[in-house]
Nucleic acid binder design. Sequence first.
DNA 1: ACAATAAGTTAGTACGCACTAACTTATTTC
DNA 2: GAAATAAGTTAGTGCGTACTAACTTATTGT
Lengths: 245, 245
Amino acid sequence: MSARATDERSGAHSTHRAVPREKALTRQAEDYLKVIYEIEQGGSPAATTDIAEQLGIAAASVSGMLQRLARLGLVKVERYRGARLSASGRLIALQLIRRHRIIESFLVTKLGYGWDDVHEEAERLEHAASADLVDRMADALGNPTADPHGAPIPTVAGRVDERRLASIADLPVGARARVVRMSDRDPELLRYLKKRGIVPGAILRLVEREPFDGPISLTVGRAKQSIGATAAAAVYVEKSARTDR
Amino acid sequence: MSARATDERSGAHSTHRAVPREKALTRQAEDYLKVIYEIEQGGSPAATTDIAEQLGIAAASVSGMLQRLARLGLVKVERYRGARLSASGRLIALQLIRRHRIIESFLVTKLGYGWDDVHEEAERLEHAASADLVDRMADALGNPTADPHGAPIPTVAGRVDERRLASIADLPVGARARVVRMSDRDPELLRYLKKRGIVPGAILRLVEREPFDGPISLTVGRAKQSIGATAAAAVYVEKSARTDR
DNA sequence: ACAATAAGTTAGTACGCACTAACTTATTTC
DNA sequence: GAAATAAGTTAGTGCGTACTAACTTATTGT
């Protein structure tokens, strides 16, 4: 069993500690770190409102939590300017993302989940799975480097390919590209794209783009498709003059 | 992501509800239900102190939680007398136990965990795994009816063999018995017993018992062992005149 | 440049779930 | 059966994490 919630999280046990010893974070704190990481990948510090929106909570709640995370040394907050992860916060975020992606891979490969339907389950499990379990899953999968959506899996040490990929929405007309990766957020959207052959590995060519976020025409294999701007922005690609492998 | 803690647990959404609609319980509430179930298996209502001890928290905390669980219709509390699960509380407890045991089985069979070392991991995962995931695990295992420690796995509907088994400590001198099941609580103890050949399925015979909780001598296969009362109480057996199967 | 709007923060509240201290009820023992 | 002990409850507190309302700071548009 072993319950006990609040107090075993504080962890004041050593004689002195320069850096506050972060033993175990709450689910919530972990989620904050993850979304801050993801927002920061966009280039700028994570704004309160953006965090709030990602988490589906009120902005006021975020202000409070950011202060606590700052106290824990996990983020650096500049008032009215947003938050950035500290080195330790970043590590935690990356470990969570590692967990998430390995779990997704495992569920798809070993338990028959669809890759369009796995996000939510992983979202809960990533907070409950031990590092050991995640490593075992990774081993069972042959230590993959990307998850079913094409997202790179960070190493235990927190190393990961952070190159920013272009999305279909960024592609110039006429370009040929390979789908590398897609957002795992919205199962509906993923199913929609899958039905149209837009999956990691697919080769496509952008045929035409209407202005004002209008429909984007492209060929996938030899089928012609037309998708909207939101869908296009969720598909990350790599330009390829020639089909490599 | 999706955080939001307190409020999505209340679940007042329908026009009217005779029975309070229990949407999702907290981890803690679930743990309470589980230990109440287990204590109740002993025959009498779960006493506050017993619950507190199992959960490693103060008795006062239990009093409070019992009132909340009673408000939710999950337990019936008689003041100063202890708590019993209601039908719905019992169902939830059994589903948790189902999760726990399937997860343990999965970890052992599919991920190479030792059966002596799996309890803690399952303890966390059982609160995070969806019913769907658990069913998939069960399928992948061929829908086993007992976990690696020999404990029966409840069905989705909450049916389970609740016969009370005798432990080695209850066995009369000279009796021959088959180990059916052992407590999964203490990994140390399990390793100790495993090393002595005392595992589910083993056949043993009680040779001698010293009084005052003294050592119990028994043969396991053709080896002779002597174990203490605590260890003996953790091993559940079924008497067998003749070795069946 | 300054008003309008957007973004962010503080203050006050609530609930979950733990704690300790003090009190009450049950049980045991002489 | 009364005193001693054990078990259980209430009261008050603290922390995490959410909320709304009211206020402050930044940004934007004319």
